[in-house]
């Protein structure tokens, strides 16, 4: 279980995928994120932990400009995806979000069939030329999301008819169908039971071979199990960022230690 802390799997050589420097977020007059510097590495799972309201979800939503849909939200500072500032006026948030996909806290399958849910992204981005290619993408994504065997006989039935865990895996399949470079996951397991959680965690570990994954979680065990890098947020500040093993065994900041040992948060 603790293979993440095995030095062999620690990813050090991987290139920087996303870089955040002095990122600030304001909600109206509320200063929600203060001076956050984070490096998201390629083909690595990065976990954001911290107490509720510390800004970890807000920061996650900055990474694919989902905060643009909230009128009072302002983001400043520098956020680079492969060296390109994603808040540059020339960048279209729609294209950015095709590269930086997102899975939400609550499963939100579209009121469409299972097939159409997964095919949604490839269709709107025109990733396939014919039905056979689309079928292949849907099948491979559902297989990657460990859902294929459960739904292969009822691809035409509505995605909303699945159980909670299946719905969340469907949402993950939907997100990876657009072949993103980074996959953002906002507490993906908070609505799931332990069995479904284990399946999703296993899936995250597999996805690491293709994308970099950023996951927000309230469960420290989950962060320790799935991630190689961990960032601890507290009251809008990034308190500590480093290798997961080091954060959990030998935290550098007293606040981190208090949080992971359960004294604050």
């Amino acid at each position: 279980m603790n293979k993440m802390q095995n030095p062999e799997t620690l990813v050090i050589a991987n290139a920087n995928k996303m870089t955040a420097r002095k990122v600030q977020v304001h909600y109206g007059t509320n200063h929600a994120i203060k001076d956050v510097d984070v490096d998201i590495l390629d083909k690595t799972v990065t976990a954001f932990i911290g107490p509720s309201g510390c800004g970890k979800s807000t920061f996650l939503r900055c990474l694919n400009r989902m905060n643009d849909t909230i009128p009072v939200c302002r983001v400043s500072g520098e956020l680079l995806l492969e060296g390109e500032n994603i808040y540059d006026p020339r960048v279209d948030p729609v294209q950015l979000r095709a590269k930086v996909g997102m899975v939400f806290q609550k499963p939100n399958p579209f009121p469409k069939s299972i097939y159409d849910n997964v095919a949604y992204g490839p269709r709107i981005h025109g990733l396939t030329r014919n039905k056979a290619e689309l079928d292949a993408i849907v099948e491979s994504c559902l297989k990657k999301a460990a859902l294929w065997n459960e739904v292969k006989d009822r691809l035409d039935s509505p995605g909303t008819g699945l159980s909670g865990g299946q719905q969340q895996r469907l949402c993950i399949a939907r997100a990876i169908a657009t072949s993103p470079e980074v996959l953002l996951m906002d507490e993906p397991c908070s609505a799931l039971d332990p069995i479904a959680t284990a399946q999703v965690e296993e899936l995250i570990d597999e996805l690491r071979s293709q994308f970099s994954v950023v996951i927000v979680t309230h469960s420290m065990q989950q962060a320790a199990r799935v991630s190689q890098k961990t960032a601890f947020f507290h009251l809008g500040h990034l308190v500590e960022f480093g290798d997961t093993g080091q954060i959990f065994t030998n935290p550098g900041d007293p606040r981190t230690e208090s949080y992971i040992s359960g004294r604050i948060g």
Binding site: N64, M66, T69, V94, Q95, L96, R97, A98, K99, G101, M102, V103, F104, K106, N108, P109, F110, P111, Y120, G121, I124, H125, C171, R174, A175, T178, L184
Partner: peptide, 14 residues
Amino acid sequence: PQSLRDGSYGLGAT
């Protein structure tokens, strides 16, 4: 629900 719109925007839909 807003979550459906978010899900769609999160996939890069306009």
